[in-house]
Design a protein around this nucleic acid. Sequence first.
RNA 1: GGCUCGUUGGACUUCUGGUGAGGUCGCUGGUUUCUCAAGCCAGACAGGUUGGGUUCGAAUCCCACACGAGCUGCCA
Length: 524
Amino acid sequence: MSVRTRFAPSPTGYLHIGGVRTALFNWLLARQAGGQFILRIDDTDAQRNVAEALQPILDGFRWLGLDWDEGPEIGGPYEPYFQSERLSHYQAAAQQLLDSGHAYRDYSLPAEFAAERETAEKEKRDFVYSRKWMAETSEQAANFAAAGRSFVVRLKMPREGQCQFHDLIRGDVAFDWVREPDHVIQRGDGTCLYHLASVVDDHEYRITHVVRAIEHLSNTPRQIFIAQSLGYELPQYAHIPFVAEPGSKNKLSKRKIEQYLNNKEFKRLYQSGADIAAKVGVIPDPNSFNPVLVDFYRQIGFLPDAIINYLLLLGWSLDDKTENFSREEMLQHFSLDRVVKSEASFDPQKLLTFQGRYMNGLPLKQKAKLCLAFLQRAGLVADPVPCATGERVQQIVAAADDRIVMAGDILQFENFFVPDQQLQYEDKAFQKRLVTPPRAGELINEFNLVIAITPEFTAAALEIELKNFCETQGIELGDIIHALRVALTGSAAGFGMFDTMAILGRASCISRINRALDKLERAS
RNA sequence: GGCUCGUUGGACUUCUGGUGAGGUCGCUGGUUUCUCAAGCCAGACAGGUUGGGUUCGAAUCCCACACGAGCUGCCA
């Protein structure tokens, strides 16, 4: 039998990084066995517009390259794949459980049921429901109904023995049945709840491996009870640890972003994203612009492969040293028995490291193409791209080298794309490199005369020119080069000066130096 | 409170009971360079600062304790 796995997102509009890792493990397991990976939409509780809230999730999966064989937009042999459209299946299952005596109609009022539970809690004993309002015969039901009560369907859970099962990651686990309450599987209005729906769907979709986060481990006994009562064959279970917050073992949560921003590395990641967003002119949506969510990374120019590789290693390893895995290698080596049992903290810095590795492993053309998209979004490059501009972007990307970690980082070099007269100078840099040094203005002015007539305007030729210039002036390279950098780029930091000059070209260099000299004059 | 799971340097991890526990990220220092990155070299930092047991020998196996997390819904 082929391996069939699933991931079941709720249509919330956002794809959580922890969810992606769970999906990844499912995807790998199916793909490496030549099986199927299924996307099921858990929208039993959804009031909102599902289509709208689902789109970002599907987009996220596509962007990450986690393709699904059955599910939304592509259908499949066991349609539909939306739980909201499968109510009749669940109701039939609930009826079957009722008929076989594995479930009962419960006519208690929510307050009555809660009161029993609270009493038990107060007396510090396990809560075992009295089943006082249980109706097993139609007369009992009629009596309760006559009293104006309505019912929900509850599981009639065993009260003896243990639920034992084997988990592919945790090994053998056991729960006492008596501590499993009589869970509700169907509401008064006839709609059904998650546990019933999930079990029915997993069966009807022929799911062979249920791989999901550890928080579902304690839900497993009730699901096993449902499955066995319905005569289903059990899938294999594998409960993977959740992804924890940076620097803690708490579950990573999208809502705690404010708190995470106190973490230095998380903040750094967020800030680099925010800077890019600002330059692209996007006001970040606080709901989705969040490093806990995949969309954040898409917006600022991460590579899907980097994210996937990072997430793979969050809870799984091949050996003591291998870190970089292509998709093929992942598929070849992944196995559930090397998934760790303890939770792993999300480390923004390490994710950034993977991103840098992947970005700089890219051929120049591809890297430049990714960067170009950001320049266009920032309105710095026209669409269609003029040929010369494309060249220039490539030159800049090459010169910037690994200073570009995510594609949006190209915007740190935006000054190469603004007209000379609109170049912005960083005040501090201007002060330190042009105003304060006594000869700065004089030197760049002199050098400006040199570059006006230098025959060859290439990085190599300019290096010789400038070094000669320093010699005749009796100065060190450092005495002029910083002033030059600020004059030409407005910034104190950047890539090599000779590349910078060559990329800007003679005319720009001259006019930018003149502009800096004007500003310098006005400043004094 | 109960149940379940977990516990190695700041983080991710490796370690059929057997030399000073290995790798990656980060950190510190040095070095290179026109700045910033990157690079190179070196360094600090670990087995729950718990108690007991098994053993010639324990991070590894067992028990206890401590700590952490998840679950304990007419949420998923």
